[in-house]
Design a protein around this nucleic acid. Structure first.
Lengths: 369, 369
DNA sequence: CGGAAAGACTAAAGCGCATTAGCGCTTGGC
DNA sequence: GCCAAGCGCTAATGCGCTTTAGTCTTTCCG
């Protein structure tokens, strides 16, 4: 038999017990003037003794906001439970939110449209005070949408927006230096003697994918590398493996591969292992995001080591600043350091010999973007 | 310059426009009797036209519940962003919740105490109508806590609780057949000729860890395996690797290893690779949870393939049933199928030769639980 | 010593919704 | 032809909190 649940105390209970009016209680508990220090203390004691907590809905209804921020993840299911990145990010976000007693409303949806619909609904229902937005895109409709709704937002991993003089941007942005990282990775490989580098990228509609592709091209031009290219994938292991096979089937395959996330890189490493290509002797591999994964496989994967939890914390800080009334602005994350591990080494003198794959038919021609 | 955000319409606006009272609007929009079909339609149209959505706080305040369920993840940060399991689970949970227009309040905390504190706070603030609880433990305090608070809850991955006749359990449970899976895994390995099996387990305080350990012991006894043991870890890659090293350093090392999650297994595979132990010729590996990871590494890891998203969906269904007033009960997940992959093969005729680890001092004696 | 100002506190209204009581009208049964 | 019942709707209340507008008392100053 279920015990009848305890009734939660309200301010009225406190007022009764402390012998004051409800307003006095409100003033006392919200650090507002209007009550003497002694009364304040007494009220506080009673509140504590009763285990009172403000009822979220009542607060929200009387104009205080919902004390909640939202986060929507819009990724196809199969690439979802994959990257350590998100849980790390969320974990960092929470650290900051917990301090401010803000809740995190979380939603996983299939695509961009559903994501936008979620924002609209949250806005209409007053469910969140602001949102954190991930995976900025090319021609992203979300800043305008959120700006139009007047819903405070932080675009995580987006560059500073271009705004006309005097205008203030609709949303805050938290930049990750993709170009800088790419330059560092290419520099690392170039220093090891690599001249043919291929970039196995993620989804082309994401802005950071485009930035990385552009940066690779720029660095290649700067260093005089004529054979540097990017191919895009959907972040899934299968496409990572397939792209790797295609690239390695090339007449003059690259000596180094840069993968846009850990899953792609691990899948690529498996392809190399399967083909008997020695890493890093014949082929060097780099993963974009560091993770347990990168450290777990053998050889461990060279990767830029950034503090993802801190990234999340900064994003949450940018949002709380916005909620406090600060104008939207831009923050830039520091450039992470490249951690060289077993998967990168000096470029081979000769090209790696792509042994025919064990149980595989002839591969098609490599398709590079 | 930020546009002044649009004012969100309330029922009063609808009432005004439709020329009826607020109550009529409430009746019409909540499918309650008291308005004629024509008026109802008119009101509905106006509501739609205005893009009205019920304000969550107001609903909650007038006794309707918060339309939100909570999920707390209490895992040390370093083992967090690791398993695909959680995001998959959450993704499944959302599918169900989205249909019922329920939000998911998500929180990551450091430990059990913080988790319990979160439940208390959520309860006191009326922030959630129910919670989903993961990682059931030995002597878990959470069912009693939640039962006492009268907060509907579903323990994900917990066996049916023992309750006295006539009593109903405090919370619902959704069982995963750990014992059955372990039996199937041991059976698979036994059929391949393996006789020395070690189980690299997860955190000992989790109930499922204990169930798996007990099941391994039982199966070993049934099959007459004298050398079957479990060692526990914290799920981190480093402990997975360390445990693997210790076990392989044994005088007569096992020919098969069962890992309690994908990360441990991948770390174990890396150790084998690093030592030049051929998988599966000399050593077979099994991962408990299937994931992209298991499929990405080479050789791919044999694992029980369960539909984690469905698991999450079922958990959410159990909770919504509870919210609808159904009594707490138990549901059992079906036994997943074991997917044999490249990491398991016939037991070697001879023991695998544990080559001395490259840069490592002599290992201590293996410690098994 | 009178009046203004400041301080401590209370009363009351309002946030947006659900719900209950109640009002006026139409029907139906006898 | 009258009363009861039912329908369609409105008015009013309450959820728990914040906030504004007071009220009453004390203090300070000219």
């Amino acid at each position: 038999m279920r015990r009848t649940p305890a009734r939660r105390p309200t301010m009225k209970d406190i007022a009764l017990r402390a012998g004051v009016s409800e307003s006095a209680v409100s003033f006392a508990l919200n650090d507002r003037p209007g009550v003497s220090p002694v009364t304040r203390d007494r009220i506080r004691r009673v509140a504590e003794q009763l285990g009172w907590q403000p009822r979220a809905a009542a607060r929200a209804l009387s104009g205080e906001g919902s004390a909640t921020v939202g986060l929507v993840l819009a990724r196809p299911a199969r690439t979802l439970g994959v990257e350590s990145f998100f849980l790390q990010l969320v974990s960092g976000i929470q650290e900051e939110l917990a301090e401010r007693k803000l809740g995190l409303l979380f939603q996983v949806v299939e695509g961009l449209d559903a994501e936008c619909a979620t924002y609209r609904r949250w806005w209409a229902e007053h469910r969140v005070d602001g949102v954190l937005v991930v995976d900025p895109r090319q021609d992203d409709p979300r800043p305008d949408l959120l700006g139009g709704l007047g819903l405070p937002a932080v675009m995580i991993g987006a560059p500073a927006p271009e705004v006309a003089d005097g205008e203030s941007p609709a949303v805050s942005t938290l930049g990750a230096d993709d170009a800088g990282i790419m330059a560092a990775l290419v520099g690392h490989l170039h220093a090891l003697g690599h001249r043919r580098i291929t970039h196995i990228a993620g989804l082309p509609e994401f802005a950071h994918t485009q930035r990385r592709i552009a940066s690779l091209r720029a660095e290649a031009a700067r260093l005089g590398l004529t054979e540097a290219a990017s191919v895009t994938t959907d972040y899934s292991d299968s496409e990572g493996a397939a792209a790797t096979r295609r690239v390695l089937d090339h007449r003059r395959p690259p000596t180094a591969l840069i993968y846009d996330n850990d899953v792609l890189a691990v899948a690529g490493l498996a392809v190399a292992t399967e083909r008997g290509i020695r890493v890093p002797d014949q082929l060097s591999l780099v993963a974009w995001d560091d993770s347990v994964l990168c450290r777990s496989v053998h050889p461990a994967l060279t990767a830029p080591v950034r503090d993802t939890a801190a990234f999340g914390r900064h994003a949450a800080q940018a949002l709380t600043a916005l909620l406090d009334g600060a104008p939207a602005g831009h923050t830039q994350e520091p450039l992470p350091r490249i951690e060289p591990r077993g998967s990168t080494g000096p470029a081979p003198d000769q090209d790696p010999v792509p042994a025919p794959a064990p149980q595989e038919g002839p591969s098609g021609p490599p398709r590079c973007s």
